[in-house]
Simulated assay, not measured.
Amino acid sequence: MTKHDPKDYSWLPADVLAFIAKTDAAYPPDAVNFTIAEQRAFYDKMCAAFAPPHPEGLRAQDLSLNGVPCRRYTPTAPREGVTVLYFHGGGFVVGGLHSHDSICAELAEGAQATLISVDYRLVPEHKHPAAYDDCIAVAEAVAGPKILVGDSAGANLAASVAATRDDIVGQVLIYGGFGRDLSLPSFTRHAFAPGLTLADIEFYADLRYAKGRPEHDVTSVPMDAEDFSVYPPTALFSAECDPLASESVEFAARLAEAGVPVTFTEEPGLIHGYLRARTMADGARRSFENITTALRDMVTKASDQ
């Protein structure tokens, strides 16, 4: 077997392979074949296995904003004048405040920004646009300029919110899905990638909508935007071995063509969900540092204005 075999990822770095093995031990690669309750239990177990303690001095408080459960992270020296909103990944089906708790804590402390994690409603119990509506409700409840951060499904939500509000001053989007074109190269090249497969993506998409995906809806497909210049400065991060990778490439190109300040980084040798690998894989740790730096730069610029 060679590196070009679409089902062989044995060429990945040893620390990434160890991350995959630890992930698979808690969250089966065929988890979509289990019940929703079982998938959520698997996901919670997996996330707990990759959850280091909060940075010393950081404070976390649960609260409700416009009826949406949230968790606010206050770092040791928060910059004033801007708030970060975090939308978690999980295919719109799994995850919550608990799943991304340590990620949010470290980002808040690293960027020295007050960060609010949003516990939006999940499918299949709450179809689109419930998750988007919850994210908008929190954005409305938080005064002043905001920077959005999201991974995977959360990156999709962040971009949709950014397209429909004028008080978003930046966004950091991590291995997200932004369009509807499954002919893009990565969907074929990495259809069987560890961490997320094309079949997984199709499963989540089928669950998200009550009557099928709408033909044109920027609240669910950010690249449906008629005018990409509405987007704020953006930092995009993708994983090389991810069926969604090409969507970040395409989204970055659209933003650049519209004159939006944008940076794009494709992380070599990493897979979807690599934020959890930051404590055990060198590439993931470096990427998390780059993500934190991108967020800190946005926070600094916003707070100085």
Rank of each mutant, 00 (worst) to 15 (best):
T2R: 11
T2N: 11
D5E: 14
D8V: 15
Y9L: 11
L17G: 04
L17E: 07
I20N: 06
T23L: 09
A26C: 13
V32R: 15
F34G: 04
F34L: 11
T35P: 10
I36R: 10
E38L: 09
F42M: 13
F42H: 13
D44N: 13
M46K: 15
A49V: 03
F50Y: 08
F50A: 02
P53C: 09
P55G: 01
E56Q: 14
G57C: 06
D62P: 06
L65H: 04
V68K: 05
P69C: 10
C70Q: 07
R72D: 06
P75Q: 07
P75G: 10
P75R: 03
P78H: 03
G81W: 04
Y86F: 14
F87P: 01
F87I: 05
G90D: 00
G95A: 09
S99T: 11
H100N: 13
D101M: 13
S102I: 03
C104P: 02
E106N: 13
A108Q: 04
E109D: 13
G110H: 10
Q112K: 13
Q112S: 15
T114M: 15
L115T: 03
R121H: 11
L122W: 03
L122N: 05
E125N: 05
H128A: 12
H128R: 08
P129N: 06
A131G: 09
D133S: 13
V138F: 07
E140R: 15
V142N: 11
G144C: 04
L148T: 02
G150N: 00
G150P: 00
S152M: 03
G154A: 07
G154S: 06
G154K: 01
A155F: 09
A155K: 09
T164G: 08
R165W: 03
R165Y: 03
R165F: 03
D166K: 15
D167L: 08
G170F: 01
L173T: 01
I174E: 02
G176S: 04
G177N: 07
F178I: 01
P185V: 06
A191E: 11
F192R: 07
A193D: 02
L196A: 05
T197V: 09
T197L: 07
A199Y: 04
E202D: 08
F203A: 09
F203G: 01
A210V: 10
G212T: 12
T219Y: 05
S220Y: 10
V221I: 15
P222C: 11
P222N: 13
D227C: 09
Y231H: 14
Y231P: 05
P233L: 06
P233C: 08
P243D: 02
L244W: 01
S246W: 03
A253K: 15
T265N: 15
E267F: 07
P268M: 08
L270F: 12
I271C: 05
H272D: 10
H272R: 10
R276F: 14
A277F: 10
T279N: 12
M280Y: 04
M280R: 09
S287C: 14
S287F: 02
N290Q: 14
L295S: 02
L295N: 01
K301Q: 11
A302F: 01
S303G: 02
D304M: 12
Q305A: 15
